[in-house]
Simulated scan of single mutants.
Amino acid sequence: MSRIAYVNGRYMPYAKAAVHVEDRGFQFADGVYEVIAVASGRLVDAIGHLDRLDRSLNELRIASPMSRGALLAVMAETIRRNRVVNGSLYLQVTRGAAKREFAFPENARPTVVAIARNVDLLKAAANARKGVAAVTQPDIRWGRCDIKSVGLLPAALAKQAAKEAGAYEALLVDRDGNITEGSSSNAWIVTKDNVLVTRALSRSILGGITRSAILELARREGLRVEERPFSVQEAKAAKEVFVTSTTSFAMPIVMLDGQPVGNGGPGTVATALRAAYEAHAATHATGHPDWQAPFLRP
């Protein structure tokens, strides 16, 4: 089956999907995006993702391209046409196409792109069972990491460094020696005193939707939680390190910069939170009553 993309009101084969050469997302990274998990044909935590999309658009003063109901319908149809059962949906909104000038154009219409794909969840689960490696990299991103911007070159450089080191993720380190987050994830540690720690929300990190769900699940389970900075040294001395994201859920880090974390295997806290999040994902698909793709209905 050929894959289908949504571009500015049309569903079309990937080979024909394109945006204008002067789209500001292409020339200026003047746009935002969301990646949303799909479970059993339904989007997980869709409302949280759309709330964050609205915030990012407002921060960049990009007009909302359509109503929320229309956007939900576009995403549902993109999932249906690609027959995605378990996977992810990528949604991108840019300021649109206009003559290449730095100042905002007055009459540009936002460009909207949506794509969806299946993900091998068995591979992800296998990674979680054995744990993965991470490396540290300097955080060289811009000063508004709380906006989910398409300007991802620093993150791509960090991810490439991780790949070349045989690692799953790069943990980004600020000038004070503290870990901000991963190149495409939020970072967590479990201290020797069994305190779950993640960095507090600020302009230095993205407010992850999975991060928010994990925090709620952890508190519901009675875990001690602190939202504060933590250093590379504290992470390397921790009982557990893990990252969270839409596609990773909760992924244990068992090697950091070539050194074992804790006992060198996935920790009990990360493992339990991953299981709790999997249950959450199965029950937190949101949208209108006809959200589930017809090919999945009994």
Rank of each mutant, 00 (worst) to 15 (best):
A218Q: 06
F230E: 08
G143H: 15
T198L: 02
W188C: 02
G177M: 09
A165P: 07
I179W: 05
Q160C: 00
P229I: 01
G208H: 02
L217G: 08
E227A: 07
V135L: 03
Q137L: 03
K159M: 00
N186W: 08
L172C: 09
K159N: 00
G207C: 11
L217P: 08
I189A: 08
A238E: 03
C145K: 04
P138D: 04
A238G: 11
P138A: 02
D174P: 12
E234W: 07
A161E: 09
Y168T: 02
V195G: 01
N186M: 06
F242C: 03
G208V: 04
L215P: 09
Y168A: 04
R129D: 12
R211H: 08
G182Q: 08
A170P: 13
E221N: 14
D174S: 07
V232E: 03
R144K: 07
L201H: 10
K239F: 02
I209N: 03
K163A: 14
D139H: 06
E221D: 15
V241Y: 04
Y168C: 02
A213S: 10
D146K: 13
R211T: 07
S202D: 03
E164C: 05
G143N: 13
L152D: 05
Q160G: 01
A238N: 08
I189F: 09
E169M: 00
I209Y: 11
V243C: 11
R228P: 13
A218R: 07
G143V: 10
R199L: 01
A238S: 15
E226V: 05
A156W: 14
E234S: 10
E164P: 02
A161Y: 10
A133W: 13
D176L: 11
N194P: 04
L153S: 11
E234T: 11
A155I: 00
R211G: 03
R129C: 06
E164M: 06
A187Q: 12
V195C: 04
R211Y: 05
I189M: 06
I179A: 05
A165F: 12
N178D: 15
L201M: 03
V232R: 09
Y168Q: 07
L223F: 10
N194M: 10
G177C: 11
R211L: 01
I205S: 01
A167T: 12
K236Q: 14
A187L: 09
S202Q: 01
V150M: 00
A133K: 08
A170I: 06
S212G: 09
V132H: 12
D146E: 14
K192C: 00
G151W: 09
V150G: 04
A200I: 01
